[in-house]
């Protein structure tokens, strides 16, 4: 990674996040864990929306699906094995992405939005209305999956994810890993093609790129990473319900990406931080008294303000202070 201003700021932010559990209260450590998981979710969506030009309004389908896979395969009262359940959850998400992608990617524009939404809603009702899915009450996961390291001579549960600080650092490592992974991917031949498709798909085809295959691969990668976020979230809360598959959840993550800045990975992550922390702050009765009950109103105004004043999202703010942001952010 080049050491640009952006990289330095991100490194600093990462360090601050890493030490936070040692100074923060439990409630906030758990809140930031949730935020980092949502940051993974938002970055996965940004791969589609910001880099491939596909506005997915059913992205929560992958998130929820992975959570449900964990819930269904977890033993009743014991911990599941992360080494088997995580790959399984990701594989199910990839397969679902392949299956739906073959259909939804034949549409474009507003139809793409509608069809992705439709698939997510089908999944929602599958889990909401069938005994198999646990109905509207959802399913509990009583113990977090364990990371077994027996082959390293460490028996038992060496990385105890039940400890909220350990879980926090685990989520942080995965968020950083997803960021670095996507950054590499976007700089590769594959990533350049995606950005080309977003800019001008017709021209990409005229240049000889089978754009459908690239879009399908992007859709699958995005869905799989969303599954990672969903798996982690199900693990953190020990509970899955149909809401995590719903269009409301899909809308929220889309707003995070737009808020932070489409086509910027750290922008998407920043969007997740701002969105959830803002929601937390605006609904705080100690701060806003009775107005806190109507936090969604204030939230709406904040989003409108960003949309009007910062068309490139919050990362566009950096451009106000420095002239040379463009190259950094498009990396």
């Amino acid at each position: 990674m080049r050491l640009t201003t952006t990289s330095l700021v991100l490194l600093l932010a990462l360090l601050m996040l890493a030490v936070f559990p040692f100074v923060g209260e439990k409630y906030y450590v758990q809140l930031i864990s949730k935020v980092m998981i949502m940051a993974i979710f938002a970055m996965s969506l940004d791969l589609l929306v910001g880099y491939t030009g596909l506005v997915n309004l059913g992205h929560a389908a992958f998130f929820g699906l992975a959570g449900y896979v964990l819930a269904k395969v977890s033993p009743q009262y014991e911990a599941a094995n992360l080494w088997t359940t995580l790959p399984l959850a990701l594989a199910v998400c990839a397969a679902f992405a392949l299956l739906t992608g073959l259909l939804v990617l034949r549409t474009s524009g507003v139809y793409f939005i509608m069809v992705t939404l439709a698939f997510a809603q089908m999944l929602f009702f599958l889990f909401h209305d069938t005994p198999f899915g646990g109905g509207s009450d959802g399913i509990y996961i009583y113990a977090k999956p364990e990371i077994k390291l027996d082959w390293l001579g460490m028996t038992g549960n060496p990385i105890n994810l039940e400890n909220f600080k350990v879980f926090y650092e685990f989520a942080l490592v995965l968020m950083a890993a997803v960021y670095l992974f996507l950054r590499r991917v976007l700089d590769s031949n594959f990533g350049r093609v995606l950005i080309g498709i977003k800019t001008n798909e017709q021209r990409m085809r005229a240049l000889g790129f089978p754009t459908f295959h690239y879009k399908l691969a992007s859709y699958m990668l995005s869905g799989t990473l969303a599954g990672l976020a969903g798996y982690l979230a199900a693990m953190q809360f020990g509970f899955v319900s149909p809401e995590i598959l719903g269009w409301h959840h899909s809308g929220s993550v889309l707003v995070m990406v737009i808020l932070g800045g489409m086509g910027s990975l750290h922008g998407a992550a920043l969007g997740a931080f701002v969105f959830i922390l803002l929601q937390e702050a605006l609904s705080n009765q100690a701060w806003f008294g009775p107005a806190a009950k109507h936090w969604q109103l204030a939230m709406g105004l904040c989003i409108i303000a960003v949309a009007l004043l910062l068309p490139r999202g919050l990362v566009g703010l950096a451009g106000v202070f420095s002239r040379k942001t463009r190259n950094d952010e498009d990396a």
Binding site: V185, S188, F190, G196, G208
Partner: peptide, 16 residues
């Protein structure tokens, strides 16, 4: 990008 289309190494996703 145009030249890349002649050498589709699309799946080497970690090389710049």
């Amino acid at each position: 990008l145009a030249a890349q289309s002649r050498q589709p190494r699309a799946w080497r996703i970690f090389r710049s």
